[in-house]
Nucleic acid binder design. Structure first.
Lengths: 219, 219
DNA sequence: GATTTATGAATGAAGG
DNA sequence: CCTTCATTCATAAATC
């Protein structure tokens, strides 16, 4: 399952690179390269996200119920479950030699960053560090570096979307006689799937509002 | 804050026709009307979905742990949710396409690399990119990364042939006897323990700034 | 087609 | 600040 996003988000794997599905909008000289999706694809996407949101909500709901019970039963479990370090990829939890922000920390940092106060002063750094410490190990240096990197990379980010467009001659297969496998992959060939919305019997995806607080950074 | 997802994703029912982000492609009469997204929006979306997937996965995991306990306590809750479905719902959705050099490009890159000029300057990168573009999609970032990786791995190759070893290197991080460079090693592994029931924060390796907070106050 | 490997990309930290 | 390096993560490609 979950083939859909592989198709859509991974986008045209047909040849090596991005922007095959892109178009230039804005007319003028500095056109903006963007991805395009059909309404249908959009709808699918929306529904999938919706489903996810619903599932999460339900699960959380359930969690509440259960923990409530547990409290009543006086058998509160510790953190035997859901080890925060157990990230997605079953990566070994061996000691991490470099600081990695926890989601909470990241969230906070990101928020502060977005507030625009471009230059976190020494003092500010201290404050931030103090706050973040409540959500995991962190040092002022970490915070400092984070802002440093965040800014630098944020800046470099916008100059990226203007490269390549001269893919007139694709010669991917010039060297390799037998091309691995041509990925036919037709976009609108998908009519079902997506998370298998049909398999999920959560009906009205009334996405809660707090579930998807997309807090995006500018630029 | 982009209002894109607010428009498109947040609320559902209503048929797809409210596109202000849409463009007409296909030229001819009856061109196809589609939605457009910038790379960044695309990335954001990808991340959000990924986050949802991860959260679901973790919640399910947690649920299992809890119900297991509950079984022990003989106080199994009903099927508050659709259990079976979730068992297989855990999948990673992230799907970032990645550039793959064409054989020709690789050849050229390799040649340049061998010429020794270890540090392709910004300008050089541009030139190289321009040249490689003739042989397929590629961006400066790709070139930059390639050299970065090439050098790093080329370097590691010769210092790591770490011989004798009882092959049980998993577990703890045993630093290689011969360090290529002393590592300051100011480890600060965060352990965000005590994740009780107040809030559930999942460590998701790659989520950006967007929502990753499942607020689950247990009453 | 599941697992392993190779490698592009992301990011914390250091240097200047 | 900006650039560079080291390490890690994710995934295309290779292998079994």
């Amino acid at each position: 399952m979950m083939e859909w996003e592989a198709q859509e988000l991974q986008q045209q794997p047909q040849h090596h690179n991005q922007n095959q599905n892109g178009v230039v909008v804005g007319g003028g000289s500095g056109g903006l390269y963007v991805k395009v999706m059909t309404d249908e694809q959009m709808e699918l996407l929306r529904r999938q996200i919706s489903v996810y949101a619903t599932i999460c909500e339900q699960l959380v709901e359930m969690h509440k119920a259960i923990t409530a019970q547990q409290d009543l039963a006086g058998m509160r479990l510790g953190n035997i479950y859901c080890d925060p370090l157990m990230a997605s990829a079953g990566h070994k939890i061996s000691s991490r030699q470099r600081w990695t922000p926890t989601p909470v920390q990241l969230q906070i940092l990101e928020r502060i960053f977005d507030q625009g106060n471009g230059t976190p002063s020494k003092q500010k750094i201290k404050e931030i560090t103090t706050e973040l410490t409540q959500h995991g190990q962190i040092s002022e240096t970490n915070v400092y570096n984070w802002f440093q990197n965040r800014r630098a990379r944020s800046k470099r980010k916008q100059s990226v979307p203007l490269p390549n467009n001269a893919d007139s001659e694709v010669e991917t297969d010039v060297e390799s006689p037998k091309e691995k496998k041509t990925k036919p992959d037709n976009i609108q060939s998908h009519e079902n799937s997506a998370l298998g919305t049909e398999n999920i019997y959560f009906q009205s995806p009334e996405m809660g509002s707090e579930m998807h607080c997309l807090d995006t950074q500018p630029n």
